[in-house]
Design a protein around this nucleic acid. Structure first.
Lengths: 385, 385
DNA sequence: CTGAAAGCGCTTACAG
DNA sequence: CTGAAAGCGCTTACAG
């Protein structure tokens, strides 16, 4: 029943997996030379598709000619071309791109590996990637890691066996460039998205302007009169969190405002933990508590708003909150969330273009930073009196 | 720059597209027989990957033996196997599944075609499909139609050229089985998801229990004391809308309640149009207006709630609303939305299993209906006095 | 237990 | 303008 064994955790080992039996009928050995005349009423395996050979034989030309027609070569005589095309249509020929890719040593696919499609940010990103890839005639090979570096190794190993022309990878948290190099060899055309990795300079990178985004949010809060502004959530060892924290720090410094270390609060980027840590904002430090928080992302901001409500504090009234990402929920929460929009679908299109550009000999992998825009809603409140 | 021409709108025509030049160096003609001894300091194209031949030559066995090791055959001597495996690792061999699939006439991919990944319902569904497919050693080929039957034809045509072992298709609105049969031939292993199509009985189908779901929602509203309950949104010619309307009708009939035809209101399933049509609920008919609405889906329900607010009516207070799907926003709107949960990720896993089952000779394509569960929140309000 | 040979469906110099 | 031949990287009877 199971056509292949699942990929082992030790993904780097040789593929033992037996490919699927895609043909519904088990192949019986061809009895052509077995003496008796073959059963002629099924001269061809019904499962077999139409091939260039069938077309060529049907109208008495060579396979080469059919191939040239398929590839739109101007070498073929118009009449011949017309006859071939008619026969192609008649027999409902389907091009076997896998065979062509093998012969030409090309690829018409790009692997896209992300944490989880259920994250709307990545869903939009994936939609953008697939859109742009499709426009160029490539197909998307999907893979998801669920933020597990081990699964990521396994998924990438499996995808590489399909010889993608490129890999767009949003690394799982805790990814290690050394490990990744074991499965994505020197020849691989890789574009990293969203998370920067040390030791991966041979690959392209597309990221958001995290620092500037957080700076915009912080400046926005300062302009509303806030002076004590926390940075809430995220893991300080992730590059995006570091960059966003830097933006926060920069805006505060620029405004001549001190940052109490107690205002830098870590939290896993999920709603539950973000809500649970709300109390840390109002801990027993000697100083006055913050009146606003720049959150690591929207999910954290949503959690914090729940946590605030649980303590009887109205987000946007008693305490200002900003997010990052502009996920769909951000517009419909109570209150709607002020956040940074990253246009993930556009980023997806861009990632596809970048990875395709890298295929060209000249284009060296580049570091690209995409802008984000502040989207003001009610969670950041109005001007403090 | 563009490695392939984009697929033409007339998708059924022969593929003229020239595949991508994935190899960074343009191939130069092999000069092996050109007289002069070949340049030996680069005896192999550096772009070339390691093949079974390389492994076989390196340790002096035949390619067949290497292949047997790769496929885990018990026929190889343990010593030989060990030597092969060591060499595989040393040369960082990567299995070329495309070549193997070609030779074995198998496939290790499944095409997944949906309207748009940005729809969280389909994002979850896709995540489930990919998860389950990956567990079985298959890879997901992604395609999206944006609800356009024309794009759907083009996308399917392109995907079929990659010889997927199966196709999971959530048909675009307005899909036509006859058209689909032009690109998904008799051999294709197809599973339709979510939208039923007449004339597609040779394919498998996985759908939600739309009727029962709408019935549950209606019964819930009836149990709260509502007597005049509208069915709001959706296009009456879509199968899912018809089924949900039937569930509504059935619950009303069972409770002995008449349904005023004016309470059946169509709307495109988007927020904007759903909001705009709110007035139709309170039109100038002679009868009293409804006090509650079973909405076609969550998006429609969200739109309706906005429309109600715009007329000064509090959803969940002055008017009860239910949705369908349980998208993530449903839990965080004001008020949170009572809806039917379809567990799209689980449905995705199920779809993957079904399409893989269909590969087996015995398993004929089946019609499978998955249950949905009522998820009560505040938008349906409390008991009417 | 291992090797030589044929072949999956396509493409591409090379002749003619 | 068209055909014969070789080959992409793998697998599979068939011999030995």
């Amino acid at each position: 029943m199971s056509p292949k064994r699942p990929p082992r955790p030790e993904a780097a080992r040789a593929p033992k997996a037996a490919p699927s039996k895609a043909t519904r009928k088990a192949d019986t050995a061809p009895r052509a030379k077995a003496g008796k005349p073959a059963v002629t009423d099924r001269k061809r395996d019904p499962q077999r598709g139409v091939t260039v050979t069938d077309i060529a034989n049907a109208i008495g030309v060579s396979r080469a000619t059919v191939s040239l027609v398929l590839r739109g070569s101007p070498l073929v005589h118009a009449d011949t071309r017309a006859r071939v095309e008619a026969e192609l249509k008649r027999q409902r020929y389907v091009y076997n791109r896998g065979a062509a890719n093998l012969r030409r040593r090309t690829s018409s696919s790009v692997a896209l590996v992300i944490n989880d499609l259920a994250n709307p940010f990545f869903a939009e990103f994936a939609a953008g990637v697939d859109e742009a890839l499709g426009d160029k005639g490539f197909v998307t090979l999907l893979g998801s890691t669920g933020e597990s570096p081990e699964r990521q190794q396994a998924v990438l190993t499996s995808l590489m066996e399909h010889t993608p022309a490129g890999v767009i990878l949003s690394p799982a948290e805790g990814s290690d460039a050394t490990q990744l190099h074991k499965v994505l060899d020197a020849r691989a055309n890789v574009l990293l998205f969203n998370r920067e990795l040390t030791g991966a300079d041979d690959w392209g990178f597309l990221g958001l302007d995290n620092q500037h985004g957080a700076q915009l949010a912080t400046e926005h809060l300062i302009s509303l009169g806030h002076r004590r502004i926390a940075f809430y959530g995220g893991h300080a060892d992730s590059s995006s969190c570091r960059q966003r924290r830097a933006g926060h720090a920069q805006a505060m410094a620029k405004a001549g405002l001190a940052v109490d270390p107690a205002w830098l609060i870590e939290s896993a980027p999920n709603r539950l933990e973000a809500a649970a840590r709300t109390g840390e904002l109002f801990g027993d430090n000697d100083h006055a508590p913050p009146t606003a928080a720049v959150c690591y992302n929207d999910t954290v901001a949503l959690g914090l708003m729940l946590g605030l409500l649980a303590r009887g504090i109205q987000p946007g009234k008693g305490f200002a909150v900003t997010g990052f990402d502009d996920i769909p929920e951000a517009a419909v929460t109570t209150p709607p969330l002020t956040t940074l929009a990253a246009q993930p679908r556009e980023r997806g299109r861009q990632a596809a273009q970048l990875v395709l550009m890298q295929l060209d000999a000249g284009a060296a992998p580049r570091r690209t930073i995409a802008p984000v825009t502040l989207c003001v809603r009610e969670s950041s409140g109005t001007r403090l009196k």
